[in-house]
């Protein structure tokens, strides 16, 4: 997976989390993963189709999600299941939307699908072509994990031919 695809997501996560939490965040562990995705807490997945295709997963511990939601809302919010799930989906939507805006302005065209909750414990196994990059963003509210598996669509088509 090319860094040119990843960097906009890191920049967008930095911008959205720093603004929402009103404190800086640090990019912590970074690892490539070919094993099946294992959910850590409350996770939202967003699918991308077009010139670039694949998926991005956002994953937060429920307590972290509640804290992040409270910061984003500007008021203390209770740690209810619905709220936590909604907050994670909206966070994913904002980060991915901002990253996609950058990539689109670079000439890539694709469609972002609405975020969906990732409820199973395991996700699909990554392939050589869609090896996932797992990033951990360390924030004052806890760790936010982003799992990115993207590829150029023409490569995908060629591989399947």
């Amino acid at each position: 997976m090319k860094m040119e695809l990843i960097q906009p997501f890191i920049n967008a996560a930095d911008a959205v989390l720093s603004q929402g939490l009103k404190s800086p965040m640090v990019v912590g562990n970074l690892a490539m993963e070919r094993e099946a995705y294992r959910r850590k807490g409350v996770a939202a997945v967003v699918q991308l189709t077009g010139d670039i295709e694949g998926r991005v997963i956002f994953d937060l511990a429920p307590k972290t999600a509640a804290e992040v939601a409270s910061h984003f809302a500007g008021t203390e919010l209770p740690e209810t299941d619905d709220l936590v799930r909604e907050a994670v989906c909206e966070l994913a939507n904002q980060v991915i939307g901002n990253a996609v805006a950058t990539l689109n302005d670079q000439g890539f065209h694709f469609r972002v699908h609405p975020p969906e909750l990732h409820t199973s414990d395991d996700g699909p196994t990554s392939t050589e072509d869609t090896e996932a990059l797992v990033l951990c963003f360390e924030t004052a509210s806890g760790n936010v994990f982003m799992n990115i598996a993207l590829r150029y669509a023409h490569k995908a088509a060629a591989a399947g031919a």
Binding site: N93, V100, A101
Partner: peptide, 9 residues
């Protein structure tokens, strides 16, 4: 009001 704020959109 959207996060998908690229020029085309």
């Amino acid at each position: 009001v959207s996060s998908v704020g690229y020029q085309e959109n």
